[in-house]
Nucleic acid binder design. Structure first.
Lengths: 249, 249
DNA sequence: GGTTGTTTATATGTAGGACATATAAATATA
DNA sequence: TATATTTATATGTCCTACATATAAACAACC
């Protein structure tokens, strides 16, 4: 045998990524949009003009434009030309934040992000709450069916936390939460199937509600943080399990 | 004149969006990937097979697949077929989080998100910091050139906060910060050109550093929150200005 | 036996042609 | 002034063709 002789097979060198013409045209088109300082609604050249200017086939142009359409940078109006547009950032986030089609590692990383975000918005919540918010949150609380260990249903949970995020009065934060919430639902479904039982924090929804209503921004934050701690524990455990698994491989 | 008679022109009804075949095929392909429970690296049918199965032209299939390639759900290996893949979520985020190509409203909303996130990770920072982190952060602090009002350069700012986010030990939070940071840079560049001067908080980088080093998770959070308050003030002011402008229009 | 060279089928990447059709603009009509 | 007709336009969709990198199968060689 070759023993300790280093064979060609052993060379660890990452392959040169094959960059298609479409990839390059996509980049070039984004640059073009940036350079031209378009306002939303401005007409851009036609497919034929782009194809001509870049000296590529209309197919390639269309594939690149199709990508930009998906990102929302342009909108095509059938038979009338294309116009620039501000993309719907959260819509694109939604396309790629599919819990089923992401790695476990990504799921856990994003769950941690969501928890951090919820802790971080406590100041916003406190500053922007209205009497109507308090009233609506109390209504949601009344709908809750609390089990013997203080647990509530998935729907109760989603309702409560969604309302919390809504009080922050920031569409981006709110929509981001909806997307990240899906990941929780997906991951916890799997854990439940394995017989996992989530520890319930003593900082219940009711405690959070009371702090939001008549506590301080600080006490609210502590309540939220404490409420989410069991989730954080599970994420930390799962992350550790993942890392160990990697080392075994 | 027609006076107060309601004319057809005045009817406010949003047009029915034209959905292309490519749009529908894209949705169908994502469903397909979800249904089939593919592992990353699994071979999927060829373009011809998809075109045949869905009874559409290869062009349409290719445009839809091109979008999925951009999202990272599939990878095409030239002449060898396509395989499934876990998308690089943050790479896609980067494509759509271009500060130049987003509305002012989106910029402000995302800036607020970033601030909330930075406040929210203080627990992570405190729990995950290492002596090496403290040392490196101190090194960054030493590089800072502090002006008479306590202001530091953009680069000093980026270095410090990037290191902070790095201590959270979460790639997704960290990369997200890099993307959102760009928006700050872009917005502040515009404000500066208008002669705007940012109020500097008494909670300087040094204060944050000291709290991280020898304070508590709570005192650290307060320092970060206080440090970011001037930014929050500006965002609130700009948001209000935007809303007023809308009402005028 | 293991390496090297040859052949072949395969699937993506790219080009180019064709046509349907919705729309806007121009024109004509009532 | 409102409606009807015509025309040029640009996107959406389909089709054909071919270059070429790769894998697999096979042959040749030391």
């Amino acid at each position: 045998m070759s023993g300790n002789i280093k064979r060609a097979k052993d060379v660890e060198i990452s392959p040169i990524p094959y960059v298609t013409l479409t990839d390059r045209v996509e980049i070039r088109l984004i640059e073009y949009l940036q350079e031209k300082n378009f306002e939303p609604g401005d007409l851009i050249p036609t497919e034929f003009e782009f194809a001509d200017a870049l000296n590529v086939s209309r197919n390639v142009i269309r594939e690149a434009l199709s990508r930009l359409k998906m990102l929302g940078y342009i909108k095509a109006r059938k038979n009338r030309g294309m116009v620039t547009s501000y993309p719907d950032v959260m819509k694109v986030f939604g396309k790629v934040l599919d819990p089923i089609l992401m790695s476990k590692e990504t799921q856990l990383g994003l769950m941690e992000l969501r928890i951090s975000l919820e802790i971080g918005i406590s100041d916003l919540l406190f500053n922007r709450k209205t009497p109507k918010d308090i009233q609506e949150l109390e209504e949601i609380l009344k709908q809750e069916i609390v089990g013997p260990t203080g647990d509530v249903s998935k729907q109760n949970n989603i309702d409560f936390h969604s309302k919390l995020f809504q009080i922050a009065r920031n569409d981006y934060i709110q929509k981001f939460h909806v997307l990240l919430e899906q990941i929780f639902t997906c991951v916890y479904k799997l854990l439940e199937e394995k017989g996992e039982i989530l520890r319930v924090s003593s900082a219940t929804h009711k405690v959070i509600f009371e702090e939001l209503k008549s506590g301080t921004a600080d006490s609210l934050r502590k309540a939220i943080q404490s409420h989410l701690q069991p989730h954080m524990d599970i994420i930390n455990r799962e992350r550790k399990a993942l890392t160990n698994k990697e080392h075994v491989d």
